[in-house]
Each structure stands twice: as C-alpha cells, then as structure tokens.
C-alpha cells in the first residue's frame, strides 16, 4: 500500500505540489488525471525518490520511502516512461533484461535473454525484434518494449507515465488493454498518469484528480462521471469553460 500525506514540492517560486494526500491500496489500479503542469509526473517521481519532496511523508507498506534501502525499494517497482526511455546503445532484449543482467537480480545471459523474449511475447512482440535496436522500432513498438522492461522482473508496483501519449487510437487501445491485462494477471499495484480519458476508463479502479497542487477529487472510476465536482466534470468532458483556466 502506498500512502502520501501532505506532500509538498516547489521548484523556486513554483509550488507544484501543495499538500498531496493520497492512498493507493495493494493490487489497486490508481489513475492520476489533471492538466499539463499540475505535478502528476513530479508526484510519481517523488514516490520513486527521483525527486525529494520538500515536506510530507510517503509510506510504502507503512515504511517511510525516504528511509528505505534504495536497491531493495526500487526492486519492487517497474516503470513505463512517457517516451519509453529505452537505452539507444542496447538491443531490445538487453533493454528488457537490463535488470536481469546486473545487480541483485542478475541471471546468466542466456536465461535473461529467454525471459526478455518471453516478456516481449507477452506484450505482443515476436522474437525477431529482440536483436533490433530501439531506433529501428515504431513508437508503438517502443512503448511495448518499455512495458516489457517494466514487467521483466515481476515488480509488485508498476508506474505508467502517459502510456498512450503520441500513439494512434488503435495502438492506444492495444497498450491500455495490455496494461489492464498485465496488472490483473500479475496482481500488481499500478499507478498511471494520463490525460487520455479512454485510458482512464480502461485502466483505472480508482481515479484521483490533481489540480492546484492538491488532490481535488478521488474515488472509484465508476463514480467519476456522476461526481458533482466541477473540476472533474470540466476535465473529463474537455470543456474550455469552468473552474480550470484554459490559459495556464
């Protein structure tokens, strides 16, 4: 279980997170929505320790993540980055098996490659792509490779940062379905950041809306459409008129 209490983060005068309180249950798929620049990615990076919050606490299973032993802590996570963040100098299978080729999870090379090919197959890519370089793949295929890398070490918690950005609607649907299937199959806790309402409906058990540095609304996805919160209503219907200024 991940629990955030009063998390603040500012960059100079820009107060991005202004006291975020959020709870994500074990095995739950939480989707964070909110406009551009509202601190969704910053929030996610604070949980991972890539950015240090100015104040507040972030607990993972009751333990403060700031005190956690980094390797053991990060070994529980997998992450799909917005631009996939694949390593250009490595082949596809080396990217997927990155964690299995070094560190505490190190396996013999043939075994790591076998696992990588299996994970590629899980995201719908054949073994023929294993020896290609990321630059030789389309955006959708890169996203799938990023997804395969995120799940390669069977993490307990998976973060997805804008998983469908830049993809066509069909490929977005494929990625959404894959995320939903994989999260259910692995029993993993998932946290997804997205603007894409189709993704929200496909992936989420719970939704939280971030605005003005705080969580304005959170609840089950089934209650999202019925909520009277004007911020959520404006966002999910994509209206220019409403409490969220269109020029930010």
């Amino acid at each position: 279980m991940i629990e955030l209490t009063g998390v603040h983060k500012a960059f100079g005068a820009n107060r991005v997170l202004n006291g975020v309180d959020l709870r994500i249950g074990r095995g739950e798929s939480m989707v964070i929505i909110g406009g551009s620049g509202t601190g969704k990615s910053v929030l996610l990076k604070c949980i991972l320790g890539l950015i240090t919050p100015d104040s507040g606490t972030i607990l993972l299973d009751g333990h403060d993540v700031a005190q956690a032993e980094r390797d053991a802590f990060l070994a529980r996570f997998g992450m799909l980055f917005q631009g996939s963040a694949l390593f250009d100098s490595m082949t596809v299978w080396e990217n997927v098996a990155f964690r299995l080729l070094r560190g505490s999870l190190k396996r013999p090379k043939p075994e790591a490659k076998e696992i990588a090919i299996e994970k590629l197959r899980r995201v719908g890519l054949g073994p023929q792509v294993a020896d290609l370089f990321p630059a030789e793949l389309s955006g959708g295929m890169q996203k799938r490779v990023g997804l395969a890398r995120a799940i390669a070490a069977n993490p307990e918690i998976i973060f997805f940062d804008e998983p469908t950005t830049g993809l066509d609607p069909i490929m977005s649907g494929v990625i959404n379905d894959l995320i939903r299937e994989i999260v259910s199959e692995m029993g993993a806790t998932a946290m997804t950041i997205t603007h894409d309402m189709t993704s929200v409906r496909a992936i989420a058990d719970h939704v939280a809306m971030l605005h003005g540095g705080i969580v304005r609304w959170t609840g089950p996805v089934s209650e999202m459409d019925a909520t009277s919160d004007p911020y959520v209503q404006q966002f999910i219907h994509g209206r220019a008129e409403g409490p969220i200024p269109s020029v930010r």
Binding site: L74, F77, F81, D88
Partner: peptide, 16 residues
Amino acid sequence: TMKVTEQIDALTTLST
C-alpha cells in the same frame, strides 16, 4: 540526451 529522454531516471528505477 539520456537525461532529457529520461534514460537517466530509467537507470535509477532499474536499481542502477
């Protein structure tokens, strides 16, 4: 380039 394409963050999340 690795930094701006989040590859450095990816390294960290991969316990490296």
